[in-house]
């Protein structure tokens, strides 16, 4: 059957084997063979070394990737002021429209423009990471390693500028202070090629 049209690579076809013989027609051999496998798992997990992927979450933490996109944080300059210059790039690129910025002017000429309001509605956020890529100042990152935010009312998900500055913002429910993952500058900024130190 020629539906593929002109083929550029060799088409190799393998017909799957669906023939089943006499031993499969009897029920018992397969059931006993299956029992052997399940009992092996049973014995290993009950008495031997467990082979489970489940973790007991709040007590045990999973190792997360250095690239994991967790809760946002606003990075700060050496003098402690936030790096953000309120250029609206992240607000512009956000597919979920969850960032709200209002800019203001600063007396200090080394800063000039800064966000008076920088809110992220973490309930709307889809954690796509585009804001990090769009930021021209390396002012926003998602490397806090906070994977779970659980609060009892909606208002607490509106992260304001000063909350976002604190990367270790405590999780009310799990009492778990996330440790930021050891992200290098290059890891946090996927587009860079590691020349930022200069």
């Amino acid at each position: 059957m020629d539906i593929g049209g002109a083929l550029k690579a060799e088409l190799k076809v393998k017909v799957v084997d669906r023939t089943r013989g006499f031993t499969e027609a009897l029920y018992l051999p397969a059931i006993l063979a299956g029992l052997r496998i399940t009992v092996r798992h049973f014995i290993r997990n009950m008495f031997g070394k467990r082979d489970v992927v489940t973790i007991s979450y709040p007590e045990e933490q999973r190792r997360i990737s250095p690239r994991y996109r967790g809760r946002h944080r606003l990075t700060v300059r050496e003098d402690g002021f936030i790096k953000c210059v309120a250029c609206y790039m992240c607000e512009e690129i956000c597919p979920a429209n969850c960032i709200h910025i209002e800019s203001g002017e600063m007396e200090d000429k080394s800063v000039e423009k800064y966000p008076v309001v920088f809110d992220i509605d973490e309930l709307r956020c889809v954690f796509c990471g585009l804001c990090v890529e769009a930021c021209p100042k390396d002012a926003i990152r998602m490397d806090t390693g906070i994977i779970a935010m659980a609060y009892t009312d909606r208002d607490r998900f509106d992260f304001t500028r000063d909350l976002l500055r604190d990367p270790y913002h405590e999780n009310e429910k799990t009492k778990f202070r996330s440790v930021p993952s050891p992200a290098t500058e290059a890891e946090a900024l996927p587009h860079s090629e590691g020349k930022l130190a200069e």
């Binding site: 089943r20 499969e24 397969a30 496998i37």
Partner: peptide, 14 residues
């Protein structure tokens, strides 16, 4: 392999 051993030879599944 383990999963297939459990069901693909089992008449009930087939």
């Amino acid at each position: 392999l383990e999963g297939e051993a459990l069901i693909l030879k089992n008449r009930i599944f087939i």
